[in-house]
Write a protein that binds this DNA or RNA. Structure first.
Lengths: 327, 327
DNA sequence: CGAGTGAGTGTTATCGCTAACACTATGCGC
DNA sequence: GCGCATAGTGTTAGCGATAACACTCACTCG
């Protein structure tokens, strides 16, 4: 390689990295040789000597859930723009040890920083146990995590939705919550509960689902059976995500309960399908691109020695559609 | 490190990799030192000397589309089980050059093999232009690609669906296709068309969407306007994915056309929501875990010098639900 | 009982690159 | 015309690991 261009390997390095002065004609000769030989610098050797791998690690949940998956895309985007490669360590079942394992395996990959997409309550604990020679930031992670955290303001999204439903004149709002071990589920539930309390509305018992349409469907059947629709009975239901809202809609349809005629329903996430449900679903949109950008920003800051306890909240947006429309 | 354990660095290497004989007590001393120092072998150094990075690259589409995203999970799974790390190079807009770029950037990362999730017609071309010092396999890629290809048998899925609809007594079946530059869309369309022809049914003009619910909705409005429902008019519609089918359902509902009462509708993908659409959707399920496993298998085979032109088809499964149920 | 064997460990070279410094030629200021 | 800066290039060392081989024992075997 250096031979073909008639220069030392050092000059090749300079040309490729754009470091140091090189005479234009020399540069051209080197480039030509690079082209001819299809030369590609060995990233391992470079990483070895510079101590920088140019790679970020992401611990992600292996699921198609809209939120986590979109967050991942947002981060990928930001990292790619900044010239970082991304290696993914996905976790099929989140938990203390699996997250710790994933982080460990990324550290072995010599990543320069780690993003943990950790919507679980256990994630904070897991991160607490991780020695952090490598900078770590969490997305949607626990308050208690000893690392910077970026989240969408789930509480506020739930507050807005609940207030929207109350403003429609309902006595109260039922809630189909997500799993107890998901922070987002807890935050949404808290936002809903405290909003009801603040408005002096009765707080009905929570019905818990697992994010799946099936669990929403089950919740819908329970509600349809237990609570007579309308007239101060079942007026409004806020589901913690759109998939469960879909299950609700299905159950209500089967039970002959009309939406929005008899009941108002709202979801959370604004999946692409939500606008085409029957009826189109009122829901909460989260800006995952922004989340990704912020996350990456915090990570680079952290790599530069920034604050361990930074917190950043992204505001969500309420999207009103027919499912909470006029009757 | 070696000092603390009172051995040479070579013995440490042997303990960590389990190569060569080491006396149990020596091993224990080394392990203790590793533990105490939190020592982690430097992967760059190892990669440099062994020439193996332990990393696979995946070129993926940056989208939440169910198929590609699930395929990615399937591959991650298989790779993780085999102890490979995964680095992702995602492509926001697929095309010849962007795919070539992504492959290039992965090669610079010194990955040992590359999987291209390439549902585009251009992907085959892009791969043709890639010098393959690194083994490459494609998922859902073009027939013409000069690399091994794993796909779900889209043609067969479409055939089964179309035959199912014809068996319900319809004169013909309309088709809402995916974008022309997606191979899967073309295969599904071909399966539909040829099945109609084989049964001597008239082939209505294709309505083309872009996978989105919005495009399905637009298609539904067009159909509802142009073709009177039932009685040898609009009887059955096969949408190339579930999201578009959802749009169809929405449009039909708005137009007062009942499903399955007036029209039968089928989709493709079996997204988790499909069973909870109104009505629950008949669709085609693809086994992405199997696809991932096969893909990884072909890749390792290829890394060992296997056939360049291997092809593997995974059979899909028709899931019948209410949307093509009794009227 | 000497040679051979294999377990257990150390020594050295090397992977491909960049950092650091060394060297040469050219141009500039005074 | 002499020193001195600077452009442009080369030389050398070393990143942290493994491969390959060398070495030392202890033990077996004929």
């Amino acid at each position: 390689m250096a031979g073909l261009a008639g220069v030392s390997h050092m000059t090749v390095s300079r040309v490729i990295n754009g470091t140091g002065p090189v005479r234009p004609e020399t540069r051209a000769r080197v480039m030509a040789a690079v082209e001819e030989l299809g030369y590609r610098p060995n990233s391992a050797a470079r990483a070895l000597v510079t101590g920088r791998s140019g790679t970020l690690g992401v611990v992600a949940l292996e699921s198609n859930l809209y939120g986590p998956a979109s967050t991942l895309h947002g981060i990928e985007n930001a990292a790619r723009e900044a010239g970082y490669a991304i290696t993914i360590s996905s976790v099929s079942r989140p938990g203390r040890s699996s997250i710790a394992d994933a982080v460990e395996s990324l550290r072995r990959q010599a990543v320069e920083g780690i993003v943990v997409i950790a919507p679980h309550v256990t994630a904070g604990l897991a991160l607490a146990g991780v020695p952090s020679a490598v900078p770590v930031v969490a997305v949607g992670g626990g308050e208690s995590a000893p690392v910077p955290v970026i989240s969408v303001d789930q509480y506020d999204g739930a507050r807005r939705t609940t207030e929207h439903l109350l403003a429609l004149g309902h006595r109260t709002v039922w809630h189909v919550a997500g799993p107890e071990d998901w922070l987002e589920a807890l935050e949404r539930e808290r936002g809903w509960r405290e909003t009801l309390e603040r408005h002096g509305a009765e707080v009905p018992p929570v019905i818990r689902g697992d994010w799946s349409p099936a669990s929403g469907y089950a919740a819908g059947r329970t509600l349809a059976k237990k609570v007579p629709a309308g007239h101060g009975g079942l007026d409004a239901v806020f589901a913690a995500n759109d998939q469960m809202a879909l299950g609700l809609l299905r159950a209500f349809t089967e039970a002959g309960i009309g939406v929005p005629g008899d009941v108002h329903v709202a979801g959370f996430d604004d999946v692409p399908e939500a606008a085409y449900f029957t009826p189109p679903l009122t829901t909460v949109r989260q800006d995952f691109i922004e989340v990704g950008r912020r996350t990456f920003g915090l990570l680079t800051e952290r790599m530069g020695g920034g604050d361990q306890h930074a917190r950043y909240l992204v505001e969500p947006e309420l999207i009103v559609r027919e499912s909470t429309g006029p009757r």
